[in-house]
Design a binder for these strands. Structure first.
Lengths: 120, 120
DNA sequence: TATAATAGTGTGCAGCATACAATATAATTA
DNA sequence: TAATTATATTGTATGCTGCACACTATTATA
């Protein structure tokens, strides 16, 4: 008990979840394949499990946010994903909303509980 | 089709989800009751459904992050929630991680897909 | 009676994590 | 050469968590 970290991990899990989509989409202005995304995002501080990423990529493709094509010229066949036009629109809007969320959250965090209101 | 907004909404839903916890906890350095949190957070840009908040508050209390007490002196009985010591620890750590996530995400967003590496 | 304030519950659905399976290549060893 | 291991690469199935939505319940007030 008193293991604050356990609860932390759970909340963080939830917190990171939503950020995966935006992280993945951000990297697909140029074609990438799943495996490269996993390692690349990991290097940049976004840890994504393969078992999370692959279904995500497929879902996004199904939704029309991504397009894919197999490259069988290389040693091993790789499935490259790329943002569609719709995907770019979605990503742009997503970024706008993301910034708004970050702003709201930061505001809350900075005046944590301090009940500041100008109308006194 | 081509309704980018539908997919956007889904991703945004996921994105906001994780932020609810941190938003709620941030407001509980001083006692608040559920209903006031809903309206207060809403004013500050974090929309939370009552059906989301109440279970969340109870879960957090069960996890020891919050403590609660009924105030029956006022007109209607209100259940006030407040951060416990553990809750404060968790919140502090949460903020640290949150900032880290924001930094990573912002970095990805800014160099979206531009494969910039200094070793080139 | 109707409405607002306040708290609570139950169900459904989405989606990540975990673990697992499958294939192909490259490197290692016997 | 053959068997073994490691790595690259994609994929699937199941379980758990938790939000959204819709709903119920209670009390105060008009």
């Amino acid at each position: 008990m008193s293991n604050a970290n356990e609860h932390l991990d759970k909340i963080l899990l939830e917190l990171r979840r939503g950020t995966i989509s935006i992280g993945v989409l951000s990297q697909l202005y140029e074609p990438q394949y799943g495996y490269s995304l996993v390692t690349m995002l990991s290097e940049k501080g976004i840890h994504v499990e393969p078992g999370t990423l692959y279904p995500l990529l497929r879902r996004f493709e199904k939704q029309g946010l991504l397009v894919s094509k197999w490259d069988t010229n290389e040693a091993r066949p790789r499935k490259y994903y790329l943002l569609s036009e719709t995907g770019k629109e979605v990503f742009d809007l997503l970024v706008v909303e993301w910034r708004s969320i970050v702003a709201s959250l930061n505001h809350l965090i900075e005046n944590k509980g301090d009940d500041v209101d100008g109308d006194g």
